[in-house]
Simulated assay, not measured.
Amino acid sequence: MAMFFGMNIKTREEREKEYKEYTLKIFPYGEQQRDRVRLLLSTMLPKEDPVSLLMYYIQLKEKLIDHPELTVFDAEDSLQSMRFLLRSLEMRAVVYAILEADQSIGESLSYPSSQQLRSAADIYIKQLRPLR
């Protein structure tokens, strides 16, 4: 890392290394896991922007990884910058259901079916309250 006019400038290699470490933190099974999550999100919430959904998912998952004592509800409350994305209880519940499935996923990446995830989301909907 070089200092230039008082700013730390990272080399390309340092940036790439950090990106790989972060990606493995969120998706330990690699690109296949990320693509599978992206597909589940877009399949279950087809009217939503897939990039925004994935961003929200990643930020929520990172918060849960960094703070395992938090519930998904507490983690969401702390994501002030993402509140504009939270348009519906259904969207939040579906993301929660996929996150829950992702926590126990193995190398096989055998996620529950959309129908099973929808049932899990329905349980979350009963627990959700509108955001303040």
Rank of each mutant, 00 (worst) to 15 (best):
S88Y: 09
P112G: 03
Y19P: 00
A97Q: 07
M82E: 03
K25H: 06
S104V: 05
R132N: 01
Y111A: 00
L40P: 07
R38H: 13
F73H: 14
D77A: 12
L79H: 07
A2R: 12
L131Q: 00
L128Q: 02
S78P: 04
N8E: 15
L89Q: 13
L86P: 00
S110R: 02
V95R: 05
K10C: 04
S110Y: 00
E62M: 14
R132Q: 01
Y56R: 06
S42N: 14
L109S: 00
R83D: 00
E100G: 04
L41A: 12
T11F: 10
I9G: 03
I125F: 02
K47S: 10
I65P: 08
M1R: 04
N8I: 14
G106V: 00
S113K: 05
Y56M: 12
L99M: 10
E100F: 08
S110E: 03
D35I: 05
P68W: 14
L117H: 03
G6I: 06
M82F: 08
K47N: 09
F27G: 06
S110Q: 05
E16M: 11
L70M: 15
E76L: 15
K25Y: 07
R38K: 15
S119V: 02
L41P: 11
D77L: 08
M82W: 02
F27P: 05
R36P: 00
Y56N: 05
I125Q: 10
S119H: 08
D102N: 15
P68I: 15
G30F: 08
K25A: 04
T23Q: 13
P46A: 14
P130D: 01
Y96I: 03
R15L: 15
D49W: 08
S52V: 04
A75C: 11
